[in-house]
Simulated scan of single mutants.
Amino acid sequence: MEAKVRWLEGMRFVGTSGSGHDLVMDGDNPGSAPSPMEMILLAIGGCSSVDVVSILQKARQDVTDCEVEIKGLRADDHPRVFTDIELVFVITGRGVQEKHVERAVNLSMEKYCSVSKMLEKAANVRHSYRIVDLP
């Protein structure tokens, strides 16, 4: 896997993934794009959500939406690494069974999500879920 980051102007940079996708990052606070540290939270949310949706679909659950709320707490001193990350998965659907959601979230966070497994070596990563049942 490869990537490249190029300076645009100010504290704005464009990253290009090995698969050719571009994204802008901004080191200013507030900036005009996500900061690199915000991108880490987005990465753990994206990685784990892919797993959760895939597992729930394979379990034939009628999922209409998956959202993950992510909070990251950083150290006060430099380097300001994440010390705690909390993810709350909000699964919406019709008749979605809790046992399947619990299994999907646990499998993602404990086995499949490589971003989570990497970050838990440096931060306390916690997760939970809520189910929103549609009529």
Rank of each mutant, 00 (worst) to 15 (best):
Q97C: 09
R94G: 13
N29E: 15
T64P: 14
G93T: 09
Q57V: 00
D28H: 08
G72R: 02
E67I: 04
E38H: 05
G95H: 01
P30H: 08
E86T: 15
E86K: 12
V96S: 05
D26V: 11
R80S: 05
D84W: 07
V53F: 14
P79M: 00
Q61E: 15
M25V: 15
V50G: 01
P79G: 00
A33D: 03
S49Y: 08
F89L: 05
V88P: 02
K71V: 15
V90N: 11
A75K: 07
R80G: 02
G93W: 11
R94K: 13
D26S: 06
K99D: 13
C66W: 11
L56Y: 09
M39R: 00
D62P: 15
G27Q: 10
P30K: 02
C47K: 00
H78D: 01
L41R: 01
R74Q: 12
D51I: 11
Q57Y: 07
S32A: 14
G31V: 12
V68F: 06
E69S: 06
E67Y: 01
V52C: 00
K58W: 05
C66S: 10
A33M: 04
G46M: 08
A33G: 03
D26I: 14
S54M: 10
E38N: 03
D51P: 01
P79E: 00
S32Y: 06
D76E: 14
L41P: 05
D76G: 11
A43G: 10
E86G: 10
E38G: 08
V63E: 11
P34E: 12
P34V: 14
E86R: 14
N29D: 14
K58N: 06
V101T: 02
D84Q: 12
E69T: 09
L42C: 07
Q97E: 15
V52H: 01
V81T: 10
L87I: 07
D76F: 05
G31F: 10
D76A: 15
H100V: 10
D62G: 11
V96Y: 07
D51L: 08
A43I: 06
V81Q: 05
R60Y: 04
I91F: 10
P36K: 00
V52S: 03
F82N: 01
A43P: 02
H100F: 15
G46V: 07
M25I: 15
N29R: 09
H100M: 12
D77T: 15
Q57S: 10
E38S: 06
L73R: 02
V53H: 05
G31K: 01
V52L: 02
